[in-house]
Write a protein that binds this DNA or RNA. Structure first.
Lengths: 163, 163
DNA sequence: CTTGATTGCATGGTGAAACACCTATTCTCT
DNA sequence: AGAGAATAGGTGTTTCACCATGCAATCAAG
């Protein structure tokens, strides 16, 4: 189903507009797939799950808040409060950071690891489902084109002095 | 810059996971480009601008709320309140709908048309900027691959009975 | 060492989103 | 025509995101 059909647009679209719409729209589908299939059943938000995964893959003494933030997909995430909510559920804890006492180290707890492990299988299944309709070569192409878009936009944003 | 590098992920990624991350991340770049370059300077949200464009492209007597909703990128948008905010700024007005008095027709006002016209040029420029780094053939490829992902996910969602 | 600047984080307040619920109107079927 | 189901959309409430502010710790320069 084409974009025009899906959004019931009658006018012809500018080429770039079509690309932008396709990105936004496809992202909605994928996000919704993970939301309904993985996050919502566990009462987690996508960002919360992302934090758990980041911590699980990180060093044993945890990460500072800023280290979490720069690994998140959404760069302006309100990480302190995300950590608060995870901490309130016992999935995460804060420890003092002797090296720099301005920040505390955020560590994943055993309960957090258990939840991540529980969700891991379904996460992988959803990832495979995303990938299933692409051939290996198509995936490479898609990733390369998306990367080109990102690099182009990053240079544009940097040219405007945005971090 | 690869995804691993950008998100500082050390482990190798599952193929599908990489596709999903690339989509989410690239969408963030594009959304941010439009946000900073177009929406934020006018004090509109992306959804509000989307409503303005939908109304501008629609029939002269406007759309019902549900007609707006099904044309939005985000399908669960809280359209009544979006319209409230636009109405409070005088960009949009509600009129009675004699044919079916359950719903009112939402029309764009002259002020709304003027604002859309003011933003139109920059919107086109940003669209072209998105497209600039793609050759015509690459754009076709990218659109086709994204469409394949959407179609696949739509059938999955429908199989789960989700609208 | 001490002063000023910077970094890292927490928090307060405002506004919007997400969820459900409620009302009014229309449709359907007998 | 009338009763129940379905549709359209408004509203209430809680939660969350975003902005700015404030504080504590560190760094840099003299």
């Amino acid at each position: 189903m084409h974009i025009q059909e899906e959004l019931q647009i009658t006018k012809p679209l500018e080429p770039g507009h079509e690309v932008a719409l396709a990105l936004l729209l496809t992202r909605e589908y994928v996000a919704r797939l993970f939301e309904e299939g993985l996050y919502e059943p566990e009462g987690l938000s996508d960002q919360q799950f992302n934090v758990l995964r980041i911590l699980k893959g990180g060093p044993k003494d945890g990460y500072l808040v800023k280290d979490i933030r720069c690994r998140m997909i959404y760069r302006f995430a309100d990480v302190p409060r995300l950590v608060n909510r995870l901490e309130a559920r016992g999935l995460v804890k804060r420890c003092e950071n002797p090296a720099d006492r301005r920040g505390s180290r955020v560590q994943i707890t055993a309960k957090g690891l258990a939840l991540e492990a529980k969700m891991h299988g379904r996460h992988q299944a959803l990832c495979q489902q995303v990938d299933r309709c692409l051939q290996a070569e198509e995936r490479v192409t898609l990733l390369a084109l998306l990367e080109r878009l990102r690099n182009d936009h990053r240079s544009q944003l940097e040219a405007l002095g945005k971090p």
